[in-house]
Design a binder for these strands. Structure first.
Lengths: 199, 199
DNA sequence: TTGACTCTACCTACCGATAGGTAGACAATC
DNA sequence: GATTGTCTACCTATCGGTAGGTAGAGTCAA
């Protein structure tokens, strides 16, 4: 950095995190290597080990950043209580739509979940926490929508929450394979129609 | 084999396929090795290469067998037209429930989809075909149910089909990570309630 | 002001383990 | 005697990780 930038983390560490996140989301945790990152950034493998001693450390750092980013987003959505619950849901699904419109990206947690048995315990627990948090958050929004007469839930909110969350994660998985950009849009259309039905 | 068994494929080849299928479903395609199979069956790596020259060949054989098995099942379900559409759906989701009740298994196609970019093209196209076939099949059942007045669809059948298929695949993914056996049951409960709503 | 020292951030060069895959010997069977 | 199936022994490539060195910026006492 030539400018006087009071940044906390070094620029290199940040670049490593960014590329690692992309690589995990597209190829998976086991399938990306320190060499891939080294090649991508034009540095040596050992330099990555300097910033992130082990692959586990790097994986944890990537996931923690992702969780924090999403956590802030979830809190932000629920903050403005003047919004309709459907509007909140619309904001929630935005990242899914965005990922679905890239060629190969899926949710980071979804990518890690696909190879959960190959992951170190510290990563496993974080993916688990991500899933639980999101399903609970969705359940709360659904309850709110039902209480306000916006949604008509055919089943208890927590079950519908799991249904919707699974559908979003599944849609990303299917879309990456089939390449059909309508996969995610159709799922969201169906989801919203189901919630509005009878309202 | 000591008994006179007029089997087509050798017993060893069959055992290799069985174990490979299990390993892909639990660990993933990239994460299992010929050594794992050799250790599991008490044979040498080179013997596996005799039956399946490359890992790609083995992967294709496993997937083709799986697709054929499922294809026969789908045809079987739709055969008896005296059944209700909900009964057909119940039979369809049986394998998902069964996988969800194992510690770590997911759908073979789902497992492969998780690392689709690391797969040889021949495998990729098969996973793609599997997804398309199942979504089309589900759509047909939904249309039938709607026509018979069993289901009330809030959105076009193909969109609901994608919604349901994604939810089932996503539920397996989430369940394996969280270990919550209710994940799949809750999703199926919600799905059936949505379909019955208003009927 | 200068020399000794420390720390950061990178480097080259290597390690043992494991991956998928191959060559060829050796029995058993048809 | 050819075919089938399994073996031992080996190959090359790559993995995550380590050892040790170095250039440069900052610190600080003489």
């Amino acid at each position: 950095m030539t400018t006087t930038d009071p940044k906390q983390k070094s620029d290199t560490a940040e670049q490593i995190l960014d590329l690692a996140e992309t690589l995990i989301q597209t190829r998976g945790y086991s399938a990306f290597s320190y060499q891939d990152i080294a090649d991508g950034l034009g540095i040596r493998k050992a330099s990555i080990h300097y910033h992130f001693p082990s692959k586990t450390d790097l994986g944890i750092a990537v996931m923690d950043r992702y969780v924090a980013r999403f956590g802030a987003a979830l809190a932000g959505i629920a903050e403005d209580q003047s919004q309709s619950s459907m509007a909140m849901l619309d904001v929630y699904v935005e990242p899914y739509v965005a990922y679905a419109e890239t060629p190969d990206r899926v949710c980071l947690a979804g990518a890690l979940a696909g190879e959960i048995l190959a992951l170190p315990a510290e990563l496993r627990s974080r993916v688990d926490g991500f899933f639980r948090t999101h399903q609970i958050w969705l359940t709360e929004i659904l309850k709110r929508g039902a209480a306000r007469g916006e949604f008509r839930l055919a089943a208890p909110a927590d079950k519908v929450g799991r249904f919707i969350f699974g559908a979003l994660q599944g849609a990303l998985l299917v879309k990456r394979t089939t390449g059909d950009v309508w996969q995610m849009r159709d799922v969201i259309t169906a989801m919203k129609s189901e919630l509005k039905a009878g309202a």
